[in-house]
């Protein structure tokens, strides 16, 4: 499926010393793609998600992903999928909240506005005349949010992959070459969002064996290798949009050029703020954050951890220079200790 520019690509990048560990960058250009596409991504507007899970189904169908889990009911509202994983690349979260939680979410959003971040909008957005009276606070609300791989600007999984199985595509997305991956599992630990997973019997995989659990299921394909959302790379190269975005009935999942989506996302937040819904906030739309911004952005209506998202993710590779320095020092200390042991008159 994928030609592999990775080896030449990464060696060239490191040789030039131009690969960035952190900070704002165009990931495809950083990976030295010769012919640049505009960066593609998702904007998932959770305020208009109706929790139909069509995205989950379309994703499974298109990517032929096997069943995940044991078909148990979790009791987590309508969520029986639980989390993203090797065979689940879209996951719809359901959260039921009462009056107090809604107020708390609105307040935390208001604080975010008061922080005045980011600086990008400070010019035009503030002066807009708007009705700032909060609407009647509902007694109850049901949050639904379709989660997906973030396709980070600085992807932890991609950085730590030892085989070059994970690559940056020309669209700026991150894709596993399943015929190269040897299932070492480092990417699973490397992802700050807990997205990528090894499809196997490892500690992180729920169901793998055919026919051993409730109900029968066909043989699991691509067993033992890391798997995650590909942003439907196979559809993108044909000029199609990803299956989940195509199927989303409310346009909660929007696909397009990253730059355009960013504008859409900011306008939508402003619109909601103008309605007094200060709980609305963007997640992943800041290129100065710990992962350099994400390819898949979200509009959330509460703190990220409520949706199972990390509040301050940081790509581990950002600290790699420090780690190498410390490891070098430790290795030197070990050498020195050995030298002292032999020279220091040990008999």
């Amino acid at each position: 499926m994928v030609s592999s520019p990775d080896t030449a690509q990464s060696v060239a990048a490191y040789a030039k010393g131009s690969h960035q560990f952190s900070g704002p960058t165009d990931p495809a250009a950083d990976a030295h793609w010769p012919h640049l596409q505009s960066r593609k991504g998702f904007f998932t507007d959770t305020s208009i998600c109706i929790g139909c899970k069509a995205c989950e189904v379309a994703c499974k169908e298109w990517n032929r992903n096997p069943r995940d889990g044991d078909l148990e009911l979790t009791g987590w509202s309508y969520d029986n999928t639980q989390a993203l994983g090797a065979s689940t690349w879209r996951h719809v979260a359901f959260i039921e909240q009462d009056h107090d939680r809604i107020e708390a979410a609105r307040e935390s959003g208001r604080q975010l506005v008061d922080l005045g971040m980011p600086t990008v909008r400070s010019g035009e957005g503030v002066s807009r005349p708007a009705d700032v009276t909060p609407p009647d606070t509902p007694e109850f609300r049901w949050l639904m949010a379709s989660d997906v791989c973030k396709h980070c600007t600085h992807a932890g999984c991609l950085d730590v992959c030892p085989t070059g199985a994970l690559i940056r595509t020309e669209f700026g997305s991150v894709v596993v070459q399943d015929d190269v991956c040897n299932g070492c599992g480092t990417c699973v630990a490397g992802c700050p969002f807990g997205v990528i997973e090894r499809r196997s019997d490892g500690t992180a995989a729920p169901t793998t064996r055919a026919g051993e659990r409730k109900g029968e299921q066909p043989e699991v394909p691509k067993r033992g290798v890391a798997q995650k959302c590909t942003l439907c790379y196979d559809r993108l190269v044909d000029g199609e949009e990803p299956a989940c975005a195509k199927t989303c009935p409310t346009t909660s999942i929007k696909y397009g050029d990253h730059a355009d989506l960013l504008v859409t996302a900011r306008d939508r937040v402003q619109q909601l703020h103008d309605q007094g819904l200060t709980e609305a906030r963007l997640y992943g739309a800041n290129e100065l954050d710990g992962v350099g911004g994400t390819g898949a952005m979200f509009l959330l209506l509460d703190e990220p951890e409520v949706y199972g998202l990390p509040p301050d993710p940081r790509v581990p590779t950002a600290d790699l220079p420090v780690m190498f320095r410390r490891a070098g020092l430790a290795a030197a200390g070990m050498l020195a200790a050995a030298a002292v042991a032999f020279l220091g008159g040990g008999r």
Binding site: I95, R101, C191, G202
Partner: peptide, 29 residues
């Protein structure tokens, strides 16, 4: 750890998603 969490009425005071883990443990034994 989340896997055993079987609340029929969601605990409204969580700050996590039903106690489910965010980062995944690597499959290392």
């Amino acid at each position: 750890d989340g896997s055993a969490e079987m609340l029929m009425v969601p605990d409204v005071e969580f700050s996590s998603y039903y106690g489910h883990n965010i980062v995944k443990p690597p499959p290392w034994g």
